[in-house]
Design a protein around this nucleic acid. Structure first.
Length: 431
RNA sequence: UCCGCGAUAGCUCAAUGGUAGAGCAUUCGGCUGUUAACCGAAGGGUUGUAAGUUCGAGUCUUACUCGCGGAGCCA
């Protein structure tokens, strides 16, 4: 069957067509009744005049509950007064299922109620817009790498050990092999991929069992992680800024309607173009001191510190060369200062914080062995990773971009839970 | 784990220690162009749980449960 959708009504002006969807809202005024039809691609006002349709149809146009599934036939005409600019002069209405007492009414709701009804909340205008932007971001991410000869290589979800040692992991029994953990990053596997394929990226769900209870955390979130052989920290930053520019500019061009629905002020997003500022950790600390923040050199930047630093710029800022102490074991030390790691964080503007974290990796076998010992990590489970340094090691770099944080930033959301269809948080794993 | 805030109708919220209220939703009625339409009417309550103070508790006290916001940690 050939379906017609609201998004391409402009091709049907003057024609009689049939549309399928859900009743979004309705209004009535004596002899004329308005039904707003929603089909996932848009919204359309369908008008029923008394006399133009049977008594029964005219009646049901007023009685149907929100989100009833319906099929409406009528003639398309341009109508500036109606949402979307088109209107359907309706002649027929078929009820597929009459919905009663839909929980999400046109007035305000609290977040707990909306999250309990997330499966229905997704039908709301803003949530539909967010999901469409999320989809376009995912496509932009894949297009960016695919068009530049990267190979998508999926890492395992079940892993035998912690990638970064520090974070708490979800555990699950694994047959006779003891405990398996849900991955918190595909990075180590991406490094193996980069040695096989040159340029790779992983893109999948990752899991953190930390009891983080903030608007910037989920226990299950999606991360894309490119990894490139023969790339140093500067190359890494070049990729990160071109990547971000590509994603943001693509979404601005192709999803402006959705961003309008979300009431996103896009002026700051327009600025996301190369070159982007690059400052060292030392310079970031200096910036904090200059703004009266008591910050001790050697600590990692906290959420409020990140906001203060990023507020000094009108586009994303890259902070590089962090104290090695606070960073992961696999990061290469700065040859010019052994206390620093060749790490890279990208802070989004407008208080959205860290959206990218990456580094140049330690490619020297002996150095890496020392790091593993320093961090008290079990060397035997990392033997395969050490092999990458034994057999044709090369300088290589990569980073991870948090998908939900990126969606949240571009959509201007105030919480990550709206950036993913079914959010998983410490006190919620339903629906 | 720590700090702060909250829980009253299906939903969002009111109610000086003294008869439990409104809007939305639902049902009924009205209106020939509505834009979260509007106007009129009706039904809808063990005020999170347990105990205490009081002549009297939605309101004060204590404990518990659940949720929200933030910190730490991170993407």
């Amino acid at each position: 069957m050939q379906q017609i959708h609201i998004s391409n009504l402009k091709d049907y002006v003057g024609q009689e067509i049939t549309l399928q969807g859900w009743l979004f809202n309705k209004r009535s005024s004596g002899k004329v009744r308005f039904v707003i039809l929603r089909d996932g691609t848009g919204y359309l006002q369908c008008v029923f005049f008394k006399g133009n349709v049977s008594e029964e149809i005219f009646d049901s146009a007023d009685k149907l509950g929100q989100e009833s599934s319906i099929e409406i036939t009528g003639k398309v005409k341009e109508e500036p007064r109606a949402i979307g600019g088109f209107e359907l002069d309706s002649t027929d209405l078929k009820i597929i299922q009459a919905s009663q007492e839909y929980p999400i009414t046109p007035k305000d709701h609290g977040i707990e109620f909306l999250l309990d009804n997330r499966h229905l909340w997704l039908r709301s205008k803003k949530q539909v817009a967010i999901m469409q932007v999320r989809h376009r971001i995912i496509k932009a991410i894949r297009d960016y790498f695919d068009e530049r000869d990267y190979t998508l290589m999926d890492p395992p979800i079940l892993t035998p050990n912690a990638v970064e040692g520090t974070s708490t992991l979800f555990e699950t029994p694994y047959f006779d092999l003891g405990t398996a953990y849900l991955t918190q990053s595909g990075q180590l596997y991406a490094e193996a991929g980069a040695m096989a394929l040159g340029k790779v990226y992983t893109f999948g769900p990752t899991f953190r069992a930390e009891k983080s209870k903030t608007r910037r955390h989920l226990t299950e979130f999606w991360m894309v992680e490119p990894e490139v052989a023969f790339a140093d920290l500067d190359d890494n930053m070049d990729i990160a800024e071109e990547f971000l520019e590509y994603i943001v500019q693509t979404v601005l061009e192709e999803k402006d309607e959705e961003l309008k629905i979300l009431e996103r002020d896009t002026s700051m997003l327009q600025n996301v173009k190369r070159p982007m500022p690059r400052i060292t950790y030392d310079e970031a600390v200096e910036l904090l001191h200059k703004n009266g923040v008591e910050f001790e050199w050697g600590k990692d930047l906290g959420g409020t510190d990140e906001t203060l630093v990023s507020n000094q710029f009108d586009k994303p800022v890259m902070v590089h060369r962090y104290p090695a102490e606070v960073k992961a074991f696999y990061m290469k030390r700065d040859p010019e200062n052994n206390n620093l790691a060749l790490a890279l964080d990208v802070l989004a503007p407008e208080g959205y914080g860290e959206i990218i974290g990456g580094s140049q990796r330690e490619d020297n076998l002996d150095e890496l062995l020392d790091r593993i010992k320093e961090h008290n990590l079990p060397q035997d489970t990392f033997e395969w990773y050490l092999d990458l340094r034994r057999y044709g090691t090369v300088p290589h770099s990569g980073f991870g971009l948090g998908l939900e944080r990126t969606v949240s930033w571009i959509c201007g959301l105030d919480h990550l839970r709206e950036a993913i269809p079914f959010p998983r948080m410490i006190y919620r794993n339903t629906p």
